[in-house]
């Protein structure tokens, strides 16, 4: 099988923090638009007026719009969000670095030597569970999520990632596995060095 080499600019321009910012703007706009449209509609509904004979045409237009959004949305994210490509091509990607972690009795076991990577490196995380279904989430110091995946027992759960921002990252289980899951939090357990840093 031909192995694929990727780099940080592969597959699109989006990074996690800018995506979260766009989502905040989009969501605020969505709430305002939907509520405003309803206020506008209610004003019309309570006043007498002629119903447009083109209501059927409006319906077909609406139908077309919905179908277009449903299809184009996923095409857009596949084009602009690089980790979609990393996921689809995961088996073929050659990582620069590979880490194996295990979760058991509500504790993560990290590899000896810790988790130190360089900004822009292709990293593969291989996480296994010896008992329950857990999650493997990586978080920025601000609390924003960098990425996450599910960790199922009896399976090898793998993810390819490229860190675009240097700094300290924390690991937390993103799946509930009983009240003890709270203790599955490893603060600043991943160090991402910038290109120049030694």
């Amino acid at each position: 099988m031909t192995k694929l080499v990727v780099n940080s600019s592969e597959g699109g321009i989006m990074n996690v923090l800018s995506l979260a910012l766009y989502l905040r703007i989009f969501y605020a706009a969505l709430v305002l638009i939907v509520v405003s449209l309803m206020v506008f509609y209610v004003r019309g509904l309570t006043t007498k007026g002629e119903t447009s004979g083109r209501l059927k045409a409006v319906f077909y237009g609406w139908l077309g719009f919905l179908v277009a959004v449903a299809i184009l949305f996923h095409l857009l994210t596949a084009w602009q969000i690089p980790w979609v490509r990393w996921e689809i091509k995961r088996a073929e990607i050659v990582p620069n670095r590979e880490f194996a972690l295990n979760a058991k009795q509500h504790r993560f076991t990290l590899p000896a030597g810790g988790l130190k990577v360089r900004q822009g490196e292709v990293v593969k995380f291989k996480v296994t569970s010896s008992d329950l279904t857990y999650g493997f989430g990586v978080f920025h110091e601000s609390g924003a999520m960098e990425f996450q995946m599910q960790v199922l027992p009896g399976h090898s759960n793998e993810i390819i990632w490229i860190f675009k921002d240097p700094g300290k990252y924390s690991i937390r289980s993103t799946e509930y596995a009983g009240p003890e899951t709270e203790q599955m939090y490893l603060k600043d357990s991943i160090t991402v060095l910038s290109g120049e840093e030694k």
Partner: peptide
Amino acid sequence: GLGVPAGILQADLGMNRILHNT
């Protein structure tokens, strides 16, 4: 009108990476 688009948004391979279980 607000809840369905939010659901469609998270049901995406790219978006789900930072929205799942949040």
